[in-house]
Computed example of a mutant assay.
Amino acid sequence: MAERDPERIKKDIDQARQQLASTVDILAERANPRQLADRAKARAVEFVTQPVVMASLAGVGGLLVILAIRRIRNR
C-alpha cells in the first residue's frame, strides 16, 4: 500500500466528518416528530379539500343526519 501524507489523511478525515455531520443533521430534521406531524397534517388537508372528497364527506354527513333524525322520530 502506498504511503500517504499524514496531513492529507487528516484532511480526508475532516471532510468525511463534515459530510457525516451534515447527513446526520438532515436525518434528524426529517425524523423530527413535529416535522412528521406537520407533513401528515398538510397531506390530510390537501386530500380532504379535493372536490370529490368534499362531496363524498358531505353526502356521508347528510346520510348520518337523516339516520339520526329517523332514529329520534322512531323512539
Rank of each mutant, 00 (worst) to 15 (best):
M1H: 04
M1R: 03
M1Y: 00
A2Q: 03
E3Q: 07
E3C: 02
R4I: 06
R4D: 02
D5A: 00
P6E: 02
E7P: 00
E7M: 00
I9E: 14
I9P: 07
K10F: 12
D12G: 11
D12Q: 13
I13Y: 06
I13Q: 08
I13F: 08
I13V: 13
I13T: 09
D14G: 09
D14P: 06
Q15Y: 11
Q15C: 09
R17E: 11
Q18M: 12
Q18D: 15
Q19A: 10
Q19L: 09
Q19N: 06
L20A: 15
A21I: 03
S22T: 12
T23L: 15
T23D: 15
I26T: 12
I26D: 10
L27A: 13
A28R: 15
A28E: 14
E29G: 11
R30T: 09
R30I: 10
R30W: 06
A31T: 04
N32G: 01
N32P: 02
R34G: 00
R34T: 05
Q35Y: 03
Q35F: 07
L36C: 01
A37R: 05
A37L: 07
R39N: 01
A40I: 00
A40N: 05
K41H: 13
K41N: 13
A42L: 02
A42I: 01
R43E: 15
R43T: 08
A44R: 08
A44N: 04
E46G: 14
E46C: 08
E46F: 10
F47I: 14
F47W: 13
V48K: 06
T49L: 11
P51E: 07
P51S: 10
V52Y: 07
A55C: 04
S56W: 09
S56D: 13
S56Y: 08
A58H: 01
G59N: 10
G59T: 07
V60Q: 10
V60H: 05
V60K: 09
V60P: 01
G61N: 10
G62N: 10
G62W: 02
L63T: 09
L64A: 10
I66Y: 03
I66H: 00
I66G: 00
L67Y: 04
A68I: 04
I69A: 12
I69Y: 06
I69Q: 06
I69R: 03
R70F: 10
R70G: 12
R71A: 13
I72W: 06
I72Y: 05
R73T: 08
R73H: 06
R73F: 05
N74S: 12
R75W: 01
R75A: 02
